[in-house]
């Protein structure tokens, strides 16, 4: 199958799954007894958190592969994933804050889950700064790859923070399973699937952009060479 048609299928599937997710969130999922409508933020919040984790995992993986093979495509993957990860991490912090205000009575508290998530966000902003600020491109790629690997340590810490330390953040998935209504779990899974497809769409677009940039640079270099001759 051609690349273009695969891309169209991916976009189509993303759109379809997003529509199903919206239906499930607004119509299918029942209202939570105590929180009511505000609980529905959960479907976006958790999905965005999952995408941020997935994107950061790709940065971690790309970092290892770049240091091992020194191929530009892994540098592109890391950089693109980090950018998308930061976007969704920002959405996690904002939606979490909006949920916290009516439920906890505050926009922000230095809870272990919130603090480690904020640290995660700062770490990947630093990653992008390292990647873009270096004058020597290969040195910047190497440094960013190492930083991307080290920064990933915070991802399991964020996940485990509500299990390791005393926190007011709800723990939804416990070792014994979950006490959440099955319809809510189904809606959450649909939302996770839709956001995952959306992530791959964004990643594909971002990587393509970076590849075009590389091609342009190559043409520019060739032109400069011809001019010099």
């Amino acid at each position: 199958m051609q690349r273009d048609s695969l891309e169209k299928i991916l976009i189509g599937l993303t759109f379809l799954s997003m529509m199903i997710a919206l239906y499930a969130i607004f119509i299918y999922a029942p209202l939570e007894a105590t929180m009511g409508l505000i609980q529905k933020i959960w479907y976006f919040h958790l999905a965005a958190a999952w995408i941020a984790f997935l994107a950061y995992f790709h940065v971690f993986l790309a970092g290892i592969l770049y240091l091992w093979k020194r191929e530009r495509r892994f540098d592109i993957l890391g950089r693109s994933s980090a950018e998308i990860g930061i976007l969704f991490n920002t959405l996690v912090l904002i939606t979490g804050s909006i949920w916290a205000k009516p439920v906890w009575g505050t926009w922000w508290t230095w809870d272990p889950r919130l603090s480690t998530t904020l640290i995660l966000w700062i770490l990947y902003i630093a990653y992008l700064m390292i990647r873009t600020s270096s004058e020597d491109d290969s040195k910047g790629a190497r440094l960013a790859a190492v930083f991307g690997i080290v920064a990933f340590i915070d991802v399991p810490i964020v996940y485990m923070s509500i299990r390791w330390w005393r926190t007011i953040h709800p723990v939804i998935f416990k070792l014994k399973g979950t006490e959440v209504n099955p319809a809510m779990i189904i809606t959450l899974l649909i939302s996770l699937a839709a956001f995952t497809l959306f992530y791959f769409c964004l990643l594909h677009q971002r990587i393509s952009l970076e590849k075009i940039k590389d091609e342009l640079e190559l043409i520019e270099d060739k032109l400069m060479e011809v001019k010099r001759k």
């Binding site: 933020i41 909006i98 009516p102």
Partner: peptide, 10 residues
């Protein structure tokens, strides 16, 4: 309002 705010932000 809170729900709509979160939804719009996303």
């Amino acid at each position: 309002d809170y729900f709509m705010a979160a939804y719009i932000f996303v």
